[in-house]
Design a protein around this nucleic acid. Structure first.
Lengths: 336, 336
DNA sequence: TCTTCGCTTTGTAGCGCTACAATATTCTGC
DNA sequence: GCAGAATATTGTAGCGCTACAAAGCGAAGA
């Protein structure tokens, strides 16, 4: 024996004895209810709940080699960026009898640790954000064959992906500013080891403004994308390049809101003095005055789709190598 | 046999064979490194990483009856309210070789489902927010003896608790407004089935203003505490009771920010026309102009403490029935 | 040389559950 | 009433890991 014996522990065995059936019938009652006669099922369920029995996932997982738990790694919950994404995942998953568990990871290393935990738990699949991951973690995922979906990305999926075209999106938002007559458009770039996905936007922006005959040198870098204070810094740095900058494209609505706050402090009118564009359609974008013109990715659908892909893998439908496009939308509000 | 055989699967056994040691040595290498000679340990580790071996938690958990995974149920990630709390938990836990997994639950029912998942996973402990839980879930926790910490609450812990005195905090923030000469103080209450903890504040507020000889009828209810739009609604409703209301105490900084946005739309000067107090020290409180006067609970410490309590339980230190006070602080800024 | 002692390593025996095959039971149709 | 089909239930044999006790093995002391 392995475990310090505890006679109190309610096992499938004890439920079976109490209900006068075999353990397998109890097992079937929970996993394949349709295999058990209604009457028997009710009896087992009643006894089980009286005894406070909860099937031991660890044991079930071990025995079946299958798991109904899916792991998702989320970069941050600092602001609401992932709210709808998580909601989408959660909603999709529970309707199928699966469960979603989350881990936060700010850096590639933390992400790798999270992946190891999930693999250790032998989850049914893992949802990652972005396409920058630690080499070792990927090797592990490949070796164990764990289904993986990358979100927010679209090209060259490691396994499966769901997202939208950053290039198209950058093009759309930049074009909007150009079309509304802005001449000195600034761009706020963000780069971190977990979020390389932001950097893709820079060359697209450049190409876009250059094709319109505008300068493409108004680019500054900030070191966080989910803090308001980055907005102030970004504006400051942009003014150092060009004090007459007349538009700014931010990596997130949070940064855009930060810019708005800073404009407030400077007494700048938005959008007259400066047009501000955000990204992500965070709640604050619609609530703040002026409302922030932003790019809305369909994150809820993204979350749902990610889960669908993982769950379908379990039922035999193989999406390996598939990228799903959930599209985006430009939401025009007062700020630009 | 149970599982469709897969010769690819790397088990402790296969690592043991490859390293020329017994499975137990491999097990010890991971669980009790100090029991294995350095040289042997290195060899095992090397082989394990070459083979892409990740210990199967499910099996280990089953065999040992112990788990190094702790589950936390978070009401929402819609805004940053729980950011520092989660960070505190995460930081504390990883330094001890534990892992934290999260589940989101907006309602008591979802919380109960999350608890069931965690219990099914046989986690080492569960961290809950607030003290309103589903009866069945509690019974289950009691029966299985899972260590549970409730956060944000202080009285009558179900098992263990870590939080601060809502009464003292409400008293502190109300007193601040009274002391600065406000006469027509409004209070925004919030009530939902998961967040009864907000309702405690109402009677304290009443007592407080009454003792100062002020009216205690300026109380309105909103139906969400983490959305900016609640701020506009709250102010509207408060004005219906008293158009000359001169101060407002909000359930969260998000609602307070919403009030600020609404003041902006109305052209009301803050704090001249209206003093606004928030709760929670969300990032926006310090970034928005004017800065929001708020109540800062020490959420990071709360998260850390919660994990400590759970992990200590595993090592024999029993905190059953213990409540830990992490205190709070009133942060005075421009809005009040 | 023989014990004794401390450190390492290794069998053994399950942990609680499920796939699968086999068996038991009920239901058809004639 | 009975063969044969359909449905329900039940043993068996592990899944991959770890607690525990027992065994191996040098070094130091007698």
């Amino acid at each position: 024996m392995t475990k310090p014996r505890n006679d109190e522990t309610v096992t499938m065995q004890s439920v079976a004895v109490a209900a006068g059936v075999s353990p397998m019938t109890v097992s079937n009652t929970f996993r394949y209810p349709e295999r058990v006669q209604e009457e028997t099922r009710q009896r087992v369920l009643k006894i089980a709940s009286e005894l406070g029995y909860v099937p031991n996932h660890a044991a079930g997982n071990l025995a079946s080699g299958q798991s109904r738990v899916i792991g998702a790694v989320i970069p941050s919950i600092k602001n609401s960026s992932f709210y709808n994404y998580v909601r989408g995942m959660q909603d999709r998953v529970t309707s199928q009898g699966y469960q979603l568990i989350l881990k936060l990871a700010d850096t590639v290393n933390q992400e790798a640790a999270a992946i190891r935990t999930f693999v250790g738990l032998r989850v049914a699949g893992i949802a990652l954000v972005g396409d920058e991951h630690e080499m070792d973690a990927l090797t592990l995922l490949r070796k164990t064959g764990t289904p993986v979906v990358e979100s927010w990305v679209y090209n060259n999926p490691f396994d499966m992906a769901v997202g939208y075209s950053t290039a198209d999106a950058t093009h759309a938002i930049t074009s909007l500013l150009i079309e509304t007559g802005r001449q000195r458009i600034g761009f706020v770039a963000y780069d971190s080891d977990v979020s390389r996905r932001y950097t893709e936007r820079v060359p697209v922006f450049k190409r876009c403004v250059e094709r319109a005959g505008l300068g493409s040198h108004r680019i500054v870098l900030v070191d966080e994308a989910d803090g308001f204070s980055a907005g102030a810094k970004a504006l400051e740095r942009l003014c150092a390049i060009d004090p007459d900058v007349d538009a700014i494209i931010c990596p997130t609505d949070i940064v855009a809101a930060g810019v708005l706050f800073e404009c407030g402090r400077r007494g700048w009118k938005v959008p007259d003095r400066l047009a501000v564009a955000g990204w992500g359609d965070y709640e604050i974008a619609s609530e703040i005055t002026p409302g922030i013109t932003t790019l809305q990715p369909h994150t809820y659908e993204m979350g749902q789709r990610a889960m669908t892909m993982i769950m379908e893998r379990a039922s035999g439908i193989d999406h390996r190598g598939v990228s799903h496009d959930t599209g985006f939308q430009v939401l025009r509000r007062e700020s630009a």
